[in-house]
Amino acid sequence: MALPHDPDPKLAQYAHPERLVTTAWLAEHLDDPGLVVVESDEDILLYETGHIPGAVKVDWHTELNDQLTRDYLDGEHFGALMRAKGIGRDATVVFYGDKSNWWAAYALWVFSLFGHADLRLLDGGRAKWEAEGRPMTTDAPERAVTDYPSVERNDAPIRAYRDDVLAHLGEPLIDVRSPDEFSGRLLHMANYPQEGALRGGHIPGARSVPWAKAANEDGTFRSRDELEALYGGEAGLAPADDVVVYCRIGERSSHTWFALTHLLGYEHVRNYDGSWTEWGNSVRVPIERDTEPG
């Protein structure tokens, strides 16, 4: 059973207010049956140091990715993961995490590939919940195993592969990495590991809109007007556009995918999760290294 939507006025401005919840709403609904809170972090141990009471942990790297092929779980393994985590197919799932919800948005996007209906993000993520002094616990959640079915993953509507991007050249592309990664000066994010890209730069024609521009200082999303000025104004996108977003492995671009799809109501946004760690290593794909879109 899906939970009621968060009626907070800040959320009402967005195209799909039902996709976000505030910390206050979550605190009030924590014990509701039908709700599962999922923490997804960059740091794999952060959950163990304390988490929102009842929240289950889903790790992007060790749980959502196939450990052999560079791909996500298939429907059978995703179903098994959901059953083990105690997440039912009709559950309302609220994601939150560190780093302004990068990995929470990424997990939400991966869950979307499996057509899970009610997926929401906690506006402001883990940092806001903690900053407000809300309860945290190290107690392991007790959730009963569910009967989550094996559902076919449906990538096409929201996921782009390398060849899709090649066919998309000339259409709107948003590069959400930092300006130095976009220009080719850096092969990776400042202060992050070099993940092995052999070439620096960006996909030809991409517009640079660093993901963080969509977030306020406290990690919450900017207002709808600000987001429209950013993506519609500066980046020149229109809600009916066919848009592909990318970063280095698809996590920061999941955050942007969420903003475009759920907050602004764009209907054709795909996340290219191969991103720069694939494109920057691919033989004979075109690359640009200037700072202006081509």
Partner: peptide, 9 residues
């Protein structure tokens, strides 16, 4: 930082 327990580990 405390919020990076893996690195601290």
């Amino acid at each position: 930082p405390q919020e990076a327990p893996t690195t601290r580990g």
